[in-house]
Every structure is written in C-alpha cells, then in structure tokens.
C-alpha cells in the first residue's frame, strides 16, 4: 500500500478550541477515504489543512512523500470540491473547468480536449457554453467535480459534496462519485457527517470526534465492530447496556429476540416491559424498558422485529405494559470501550 498523503501529529487550535488534536492519518493511494463525524469533530479542518487553506498549529502534512506543511494551496496540486461548489460566476462552464489548465499553460487545443473529456466524465459534455447559474444544483456539482478533476490532481478532496442536493440525487451521486473514482483511479478524500454515505462510498473510513480519530477501517470491518460508544452511536446503534460479566455492550435492534412471558435472565436474556410499539409495515419497532439492575433499575432498549414472523402469542404480549423476555445471541453483542 502506497501513501498518497499523510497527517503527522497534526494539531490545530482556534483560540482555546482544539479543532484537531494530534492527528496521525495516512491516506491510501487510489482509495476513497472518508472523514466522518458530527459537526465540530475536526474533519473539515483536517481537509482544509491538507488543501493548504488552514495552517496546522503543530505537526506535518506530507503529500506524495514530501513535506507540504508550509506550501500554499496553489503549490499542492490538489483538486477540491467545495460544499458551495464555488463556481466562478463570470466564466462559462468550460471556462471554469479549463481555469486550472490555463494556469498550467496547457496549449489551447489540448485544453479544449481535456475540458471536454472532464465534462464527458461527469456527464455534462453538452453544457460547456452555459453559465454556472443557468445550471441546476446537481449539474453545478458535476461542474465542480469536472473542474477539480481536469487538472489531474494528486488527490481529489470533497468537502460535504452531497449535502446541498436533494435526497434522491444524493444517493445517485454516491454511485457517480464511486464510478468516477474507479475510472480515473484518483485518490479521494471525502468529508461527510452522513454515516450511510460513508459506509456506502468508502474504501476506508475514519470516524472522528473532538479532533481525534475514534476508529478507522473498511466499512465492513468497522460497522459490525464499533470500538466505543461514540462510534456505535454515530453508526446508528441504539441499544447500550451494562451486563455483569461483559461490561458495556451494544446490539443492533434487529438482532434482538422478544418472547412473551417473564423469564429469569441469563447472560444474554433480560426481562423487560413494553413501553411502546410502532408498526412500520415489514418492521415492527418495540421500545422496551429492560430490568438490568438489582434494585429494579431499567435500561431502554429498542427491538426491531419482523411483523410477519410474529405469532398470536407474541402479538398478545406486545402492548404497552406487557412483560416480555429480550434475548440476543452472545456473538451478536459487541463489547465497547466506554
């Protein structure tokens, strides 16, 4: 594995606020890496430090094996797509896409060819003469992508690129960006707060909180095995309970079994009271209060059941106040670090 860029003990402070706290992170060549986290976690600050728009307070930014910590953005050769797209309003689409090539003194004929090629890649081959404001949001986003790709950057940086699109287009663009990445072989760093987007798009995902990396790995390694409560919550886990022998564990709602009756708890079964039920067609979501402590202390749990798998006895027990037993297979419980 080759490293395209690397953060070496990078910190950034804004006054008393530590946005990024001694970040060590390698960006793998040719892969799509996402920085995922809630707002204020330091993901955008990290991306902007990589691009050269923010200076690190400490540490080094390596690009292509060389120290670029003090290099201005124009000396880094990176393609960036901004959240606002930042298309130049006084230039045509082709003018926008060709801007970086003009600065690189690419001859006119080759420039035209590469602009057309980049626009073709994002599916806008026919719109070169338009002004950006005459395009839809989704089209503007593609122009911003084409502009960043046209310079054949060492890395393509995407700052929340899909957050301004409507839901349907957003899902479609996830696939588009993956396709473009595969076709160009570009190294991509994408910043997002949407865990679904990160899971679907990443080769490697980095979950950040309070300026630190909480956990990183491939989506299919990371999702089933969150390392701590923060990562678990951020990935959408809802059930957290402390078991006498295993400490803090989490389990996904669809991996819980709910049976009628008040059975004494073993390691993986607890008795619970039904709080509320929500029918969602295929899925039936049951909110429960599980008795976990000695003195009758309860922990809220959510179970997601298959509606068509419920027996008449199950249905009879599933009403607010009903007593049930909740159980899970031991290997479905994930132990968390806290």
């Amino acid at each position: 594995m080759t490293t395209a860029a690397e953060f070496v003990a990078v910190s950034r402070h804004f006054g008393d606020f530590t946005a990024v706290d001694s970040l060590d992170l390698a960006i793998r060549e040719g892969a799509l890496t996402t920085l995922l986290g809630p707002s204020g976690c330091g993901k955008t600050t990290s991306l902007r430090m990589l691009a050269g728009y923010i200076e690190p307070s400490a540490g080094k930014i390596m690009i292509g094996g060389k120290d670029h910590t003090d290099a201005p953005p124009e000396k880094r050769d990176l393609g960036m797509v901004f959240q606002s797209y930042a298309l130049f309003p006084h230039m045509t689409v082709a003018g926008n896409v060709g801007f970086g090539l003009k600065l690189r003194k690419v001859p006119r004929a080759e420039r035209a060819r590469r602009v057309a090629e980049a626009l073709e890649l994002v599916g806008l081959g026919h719109l070169g003469d338009r002004r950006p404001k005459a395009l839809s949001g989704g089209q503007q986003q593609r122009v911003a992508l084409a502009r960043a790709i046209a310079i054949r950057p060492r890395l393509l940086l995407l700052d929340e690129p899909l957050s301004n699109l409507d839901a349907r287009l957003r899902v479609q663009m996830r696939g588009e960006i993956r396709r473009i990445q595969a076709e160009t072989g570009l190294t991509v760093v994408l910043v997002t707060h949407d865990q679904e987007e990160a899971l679907e798009m990443s080769d490697h995902m980095v979950v950040m909180n309070a300026g630190r990396v909480m956990q990183q790995g491939a989506p299919d390694e990371l999702f089933p095995a969150p390392a701590n409560r923060f990562v678990a919550e951020f990935l959408g886990y809802e059930n957290f309970l402390t078991l006498p022998e295993r400490g803090l564990v989490t389990v996904r709602p669809e991996l819980l079994t709910v049976a009628p009756g008040d059975v004494g708890g073993g390691e993986t079964a607890v008795s619970a009271t039904v709080r509320s039920i929500a029918y969602r067609g295929v899925e039936v979501r049951v909110a429960l209060d599980a008795t976990t402590g000695a003195g009758g202390a309860t922990t809220p749990l959510v179970a997601s059941l298959r509606g068509d798998a419920l027996t008449p006895e199950d249905r009879a027990a599933l009403h607010p106040g009903g007593r049930v037993t909740v159980s899970a297979r031991p290997d479905h419980l994930v132990s968390l670090a806290g």
Binding site: A51, P73, I151
Partner: peptide, 12 residues
Amino acid sequence: ALEEAARGLGAS
C-alpha cells in the same frame, strides 16, 4: 470559497 477554489487550481 471562490478565491480558495482559484488558489487550489493553481492561481497565485
């Protein structure tokens, strides 16, 4: 971001 975009594309 317009000015940042220009810088990123290689403009002094």
